[in-house]
Each structure stands twice: as C-alpha cells, then as structure tokens.
C-alpha cells in the first residue's frame, strides 16, 4: 500500500521542510519513500508544494495525481489542489490563512488555526510543525516519535531552543485532533 500526500503553501512557510522531515522519518522506519518538490519557474512565483509518497512497496511514480492527503497552508493551494484529492481523501486546512471552505463534499476536512496556535507557543514560524503534527495524527503515515527524532537531529546542532519549540509545536498539532 502506498499513501501520497501533497503539502502546499507559499514560500517561507516551511512547506518543503515539512515534506523532507516526513520523508526522512519514513526512511528511518524503513519504508519505501519518495519526495518530490515543485521546481524551476513555478517556485519563483512564491508558491511551494511537495509530494511525499510512503508505502511498503516500490513507489512507481513520485507524482501524486490523485493524492490521499492534502495539506493546505494558504488559500491558493486549496484552489489549486482540492479537485485532485482522492474521493474519501483527507484535507488538512490551516484556517489561519484559508478563510473559505473546500468545495469537496466527498472528502474529510480537518481544520486547524495553526498560525494562532503558533503565536500562542511564542513563534509564528512553528506553524508548519503544528500542521505536520496534525498530519501525523490524521494520516498515521509515520510515527510521531520518529519525526521527533528527525527534528531532534535537524535542529539540535543549529539551535536547541528551536528544536524544543518545534517539538512542542509538533505535539500541540498532534494532540489537537485527539
């Protein structure tokens, strides 16, 4: 079984970092994984998105034309991707920046005001980690403990402070949907 997720937002929201963290965690769990960012001229406009595929069998295409999960961090991303989400798929929306509802009636929508939550935690930039935490809860793609390990390794040397804040944000997002 292979699950595919598209994570989308604008540049600077840490979209690609969410994808790479997720992919690293999947690798750590010995799963098959691919990560594919948008590239070239497309990213110059300030939008950013990436596709992460995780499964227990060889992944044929790293592209998701019909993803199981969609994580939208801003309104243009909802417009761009909601139509391709698989029927019965899961759509995680950052309502701090997306003030409209998905037009899809056949998918499950999860809403979280990630920016406000991040501000409460004291760092607006941690919004992506909150959403990633929520995504882990919703998708069960990888274990949150594995993601914590990756976050630990990524930030420990750069800044233990940022590392702690990211971990905290991740848990906050995870627990939000408990």
């Amino acid at each position: 079984m292979i699950h595919k997720a598209i994570i989308a937002g604008f540049g600077g929201q840490g979209i690609l970092m969410m994808g790479v963290t997720l992919a690293n965690a999947a690798m750590r769990e010995d799963k098959q994984v691919t990560y594919l960012p948008t590239y070239g001229a497309e990213v110059r406009g300030g939008t950013a998105n990436c596709t992460v595929s995780v499964g227990d069998e060889e992944i044929a295409s790293p592209i998701a034309s019909n993803p199981d999960y969609l994580v939208v961090m801003n309104a243009p991303s909802l417009h761009k991707f909601q139509s391709i989400l698989r029927k019965g798929g899961h759509c995680l929306v950052n309502t701090s920046l997306v003030h409209e509802k998905s037009i899809r009636q056949d998918v499950k929508v999860y809403e979280i005001a990630a920016s406000e939550m991040a501000e409460e935690l004291g760092d607006l930039r941690a919004a992506n980690m909150i959403v990633l935490g929520s995504f882990l809860k919703i998708s069960s793609m990888v274990k949150p403990e594995t993601v914590l390990e990756i976050v630990d390794e990524t930030f420990r040397r750069k800044s233990p402070e940022v590392m702690e804040r990211n971990k905290e944000a991740l848990w906050a997002g995870y627990r939000f949907f408990e």
């Binding site: 790479v20 690798m27 990560y35 594919l36 590239y39």
Partner: peptide, 10 residues
C-alpha cells in the same frame, strides 16, 4: 530528467 534530478529517495 527533472523529476529524477529533483526528487528525493533513500
């Protein structure tokens, strides 16, 4: 191709 150049895999 670009897909191979850009994608990540273990």
């Amino acid at each position: 191709d670009g897909m191979m150049g850009q994608m990540m895999e273990p």
